[in-house]
Design a protein around this nucleic acid. Sequence first.
DNA 1: TTTGTAAATAGATGATGGTCGATCTGGAGC
DNA 2: GCTCCAGATCGACCATCATCTATTTACAAA
Lengths: 117, 117
Amino acid sequence: MMVDLELAPKQKRPAGEPCCEPVVYPDIERAQAERMAAAAKALGDPIRMQLVDVLRKHAGKVCVCELVPLFDLSQPTVSHHLKVLRDAGIVGSERRGLWAYYYVHAEALEELSAWLK
Amino acid sequence: MMVDLELAPKQKRPAGEPCCEPVVYPDIERAQAERMAAAAKALGDPIRMQLVDVLRKHAGKVCVCELVPLFDLSQPTVSHHLKVLRDAGIVGSERRGLWAYYYVHAEALEELSAWLK
DNA sequence: TTTGTAAATAGATGATGGTCGATCTGGAGC
DNA sequence: GCTCCAGATCGACCATCATCTATTTACAAA
């Protein structure tokens, strides 16, 4: 968590030259950093990365029953990963009868994408 | 982990209509997904996100003694976060006398950036 | 209404992660 | 040599996470 430099503990310099001129980094980035870190965290698992990749490449809604056999994981585990992505706002879902369809919320990745660029 | 569709368990369809036409997703993405997930995971913490942000904005090397007071964390904890970023290849470091300087490896973020775009 | 099926949820477990205080390392200066 | 300092590492602690099996929910068809 960032703090104002005035509140930061004073650093005692050794006798030699200082390492560098101090630079002030204001606190503005904290909320943005938390949002982007949350998105990155959700993407920070190979299974979820592949899920998003598959959903993105299809630009439409994909049935869970198509997603589960793509991985060597149990159905509840895939369901869990989809929930993590949904809680992060990265994907959305829709029920149709017995089946559930997932799709990507492209906007949810935009802030991170813009920052990385 | 992706598997070939031939190896995927056969799905028994209910009597009604299937949810959708099956779509084949080849295995090519796995290694890329693992690399990108590793980078995203390293960025998936607000402290590390801010560290990278600060380092990026300076486009030069920044002394650890400047980074520590920006956060309400102990010096070993900041050092730990820098190590996570370095292990992920996102930042590099250089010792100069008593001080250590960190900088961003811009290339390490390029694959993720390109994929997100 | 009974049966079968897709997906979500619950609960347990072992692994990983963030944080701290204490200690270690290695360079600078006396 | 000795001392002081910046930064890294260690060890412990507690929280979070990925995964599984078992169960529940919700819907469809007979």
